[in-house]
Design a protein around this nucleic acid. Sequence first.
DNA 1: AAAACGGGGGC
DNA 2: GCCCCAGTTTT
Length: 226
Amino acid sequence: MPISKARKVELVLSDLGRRYLGADPLAPDSTALARITAETEDPFKVLIGTILSQRTRDEMTEVASRQLFARYSTPRALARADVRDVQRRIKPVGFYRQKARKLREVSRVLLDRHGGKVPSTYEELIELPQVGPKTANCVLVYGYGLQALPIDTHCHRIPNRLGLIRTKTPEETEKALARIVPREYWVNVNEWFVRFGKEVCKPIGPRCGECGFTSFCAYYRERGKG
DNA sequence: AAAACGGGGGC
DNA sequence: GCCCCAGTTTT
């Protein structure tokens, strides 16, 4: 007799919690964005660091962030920055030319329309340049301690593989996860999926031998032993 | 719905 | 050398 979906969700969350909750958020095995956001409660740095992390390898984000914040740590400073200097500092991340322009642009919008402060509502955040659903929710969660579910490729791939949800778009994934994940887990579930996705449930070549969920994983069953 | 953006690490 | 990465924007 197959176990219920609710039970699967419970098993996954408790197991990932055991794996990662006790872990030091500043430890080397933690993700770079997690370290950056853990070191500061500054929504501006969370916003900038999250934009830098978009579609870019995690380790590169940390290097670029430190080089950028060493010189520009406020919207006012970054709004006046020389784009070439910003480009040089964030060079390790992908799309660095585009991002340098967008970073200065978003800083100017913060000054012109938001009094130099990062807004704390989804509706306002999503209007900012280079801010989509994922980045907006990251600012709410890591910058303001509010409840939201930032959806990246890991948060989409893993619950779908496990058969917890069946969604095509990030929007669908966010709604589906919001239904099945208890609120108390929202602050953690994003990073749990990211770390689990990097270590075990990789996009290609997943280490199913190190996964505790193969007994009910739809992906494991279909691909015939990993 | 699909393509474009892009440097750097891993294989 | 080839492929992929804590997405967003444009077509």
